[in-house]
């Protein structure tokens, strides 16, 4: 279990020569701790480094200054195997580009994720119900290249929720959804996070995930 993610003076390398613009940032160039069980919304306009921050936290990029620790472990020192393990058991991610496999159906995309995240005997969530709750049950067996962007966004969200996690990282998770779909997604996210005792960290450009309850809002 990962209890905390600690950031210390993190800044994308691309902004290294323009540090002054982040003087009032509540995320970059200062100490920040994300704790398990909490909810965080990171607000910023486009181009401020939201997706970069998500990539740093998801360990798919290392071009940043400062330090990111998963509990005591520096992300820069983790091996491929350790990173894969964290992605399967501790850190779920919904990327802005969704990154679904168009060659597979919606359900196959989710099942592929669950296949590597759970042991054979381990109980798995009933994801078919989630498709129903998010209003895309009729798209479950359709190849992803035949889904709309909004439908894909919900499939990608189900895929992220389907795995065990301590932190759920969502990069503009409702950017292609209407308010009703936003609320349906937020409810499902809140239930799943509560079930696992996990933290939810999401980014927003003015269309935030409509989570009920306390959310720590941070400006990038």
């Amino acid at each position: 279990m990962i209890r905390q993610i600690n950031l210390t003076n993190v800044l994308p390398a691309v902004f290294e020569l323009d540090r002054a613009q982040f003087a009032s940032s509540e995320v970059f160039l200062r100490p920040l701790t994300f704790e398990r069980g909490q909810r965080y919304c990171i607000n910023a306009r486009s181009g401020r480094g939201k997706t970069s921050l998500c990539d740093f936290l998801y360990m798919s990029r290392r071009d940043f200054a400062g330090e990111i620790l998963f509990d005591e472990a520096d992300v820069r020192t983790l091996s491929d195997r350790q990173i894969s393990r964290i992605r399967r058991r501790h850190l779920a991610y919904l990327p802005q580009e969704l990154e679904l496999f168009d060659e597979l159906t919606a359900l196959e995309n989710v099942n592929l994720k669950m296949k590597i995240c759970y042991d054979a005997a381990e109980p798995r969530p009933d994801v078919v119900k989630w498709f129903d709750r998010l209003g895309i049950a009729d798209r479950i067996d359709r190849p992803c290249d035949r889904l709309s962007v909004g439908q894909k966004q919900r499939v990608a969200l189900i895929r992220a929720l389907s795995q065990p996690f301590d932190f759920l990282l969502l990069d503009e998770p409702v950017s292609h959804l209407d308010e009703e779909s936003n609320r349906l997604c937020a409810k499902l996210i809140a239930e799943r996070a509560e079930q696992l005792g996990a933290a939810v960290i999401f980014t927003s450009v003015g269309n935030p995930l409509l989570l009920d309850g306390p959310v720590t809002s941070l400006t990038l």
């Binding site: 998801y58 798919s60 491929d80 195997r81 894969s84 992605r87 399967r88 991610y93 990327p95 990154e99 592929l112 994720k113 590597i116 995240c117 895929r159 795995q163």
Partner: peptide, 9 residues
């Protein structure tokens, strides 16, 4: 690899 497979897998 981004959804959790190792390069070896």
């Amino acid at each position: 690899i981004r959804i959790g497979f190792t390069p070896a897998q």
